[in-house]
Nucleic acid binder design. Structure first.
Lengths: 130, 130
DNA sequence: TTCCTACTTGCACATCTGTTCAGAGGGTGA
DNA sequence: TCACCCTCTGAACAGATGTGCAAGTAGGAA
């Protein structure tokens, strides 16, 4: 998942330190933009979310689950992965609430958690197909 | 970026091989879902795109650029990163067409490339704030 | 109970990622 | 031309990720 390397100890850069060695030129820009920069916590959460979607196998799993509820071994067969790998990846999706699951007898059935995934999917497809 | 480990040589799994050792139970499901599973190439592309957004620093950079066009050293100051690191990350964003840039004198000014990013941002915020 | 099946988890390993450092462009102005 | 500034790039490193294996858990059947 996304790394927890948010605090960069090097280059502390006081709030009004000069930028680019000699440039007072752009200091205004920096001051203007800085308060609008995504907060570290939120950036971290968002990065972790995107990170959950940043693996082709997980995307395949989601696309399969978007069709219908499936148990782990069916998923493994559908996307041609080992069951262990599927289980590992489902845990990632689960932890980001991208899928939900229910146990029925010996099987665990997974399905997509909500509609945001579908919207995201559409957005990205659009971007990629330009 | 996302790994290029899409072809898994283990567990080849012929199209109509039995699933879950003994289960003819779910074979129908697998057959039904399999053709709808995201194609490997597209899954790969999509994963790489999400991967570009899966780093908190890159998200911060984008949020800064969403405010206004900025040169590299201003960006570095705004998100408190080293300039080299910023340059490396901008390359990632650039290669996924999330930002565009123009050279003006000694500076290179970056800005967000299109509106999809904003939409994505909204979608994800919504999901995360539930 | 015991066995079997479906799934999960811990570990080790190979691979990938993001950072810093050092140095190389590329452009400006003297 | 040169010196300087801004930016980019390659190498090396630490840390993270995904996989298979092997062991473990949970539910159902005998």
């Amino acid at each position: 998942m996304a790394r927890a390397q948010l605090s960069n100890p090097k280059k502390p850069l006081a709030a009004d330190a000069p930028v680019c060695e000699a440039s007072l030129v752009h200091l205004d820009n920096v001051r203007q933009v800085q308060p609008e920069v995504l907060e570290t916590n939120q950036a971290q959460r968002m990065a972790e979310f995107f990170s959950a979607l940043s693996d082709p196998h997980r995307l395949k799993l989601l696309s399969a689950l978007a069709q219908q509820e499936l148990c782990v071994c069916d998923l493994a067969a559908a996307v041609k992965m080992g069951e262990s790998a599927v289980s590992h990846q489902l845990r990632v999706l689960r932890s980001h609430r991208l899928v939900k699951y229910r146990r029925q007898g010996r099987n665990v059935y997974y399905s997509v958690a909500d509609d945001h995934v579908a919207s995201l999917y559409r957005e990205v497809s659009e971007h990629l197909n330009e």
